[in-house]
Design a protein around this nucleic acid. Sequence first.
DNA 1: AGCCAGGACTGAG
DNA 2: CTCAGTCATGGC
Length: 218
Amino acid sequence: MNVCRELNQIYDLLLDRYGPQYWWPGKTRDEIIIGAILTQNTNWKNVEKAIDNLKSENLLSLHSIEHSSLDLISKCIRSSGYYNQKAKRLKSIARYFNQYGYQVFIEKSITNFRSELLSINGIGPETADSILLYAFDKPTFVIDAYTKRIFHRLDFLPRSPSYDDVQRFYMNNIQKDVKLFNEYHALIVRHAKECCQKIPQCSNCVLLNSCKFKKKIV
DNA sequence: AGCCAGGACTGAG
DNA sequence: CTCAGTCATGGC
């Protein structure tokens, strides 16, 4: 299929330009899960400070989070914004994962795992998919505002597509490969931050300058 | 000085 | 189901 080839070409252009991103920027599963909550609608720089604070209070694990006070947590994560909400969300997700060892979750089917995550208050589709892909290597494509913006500009998507529609678009048109899903989303974020938000750099945009995709820009 | 970040929930129409 | 309002700090 044509779209299929184009999505692979875009991936190659981004990979050539930026190189592999080796996401998620966090080592342990707990740290990835915690970061996924903290980064909701928030600059990653602010999240890093929050993570540093959690680490110095020994709160960078789901077990310590579950047994810590809401007050201390929200104090640590203040810089990430929405700190009252996010402190509660961290508690909820800690309670969920602490029910069993990680092996139980590793063995879960992606469908069941995803719907369980979505039933937790404060976990929407993007956070769920980030956790599935980056903490558990489950093959699901993470959609965010950048993805919608960039691919709308390239004329692959309508103006305000639903999360599930966009996700189906990728899942139906590229190989179901964890490594590819991982790098693709990371590259989109890298490209958005580095190029599409800053006017000068945008004139060197690897996507807009490719003859293949140039004609699609209005 | 605004504007906006790697969202999600709620209530209203 | 679509959509504004809400949550909130820090960087540019």
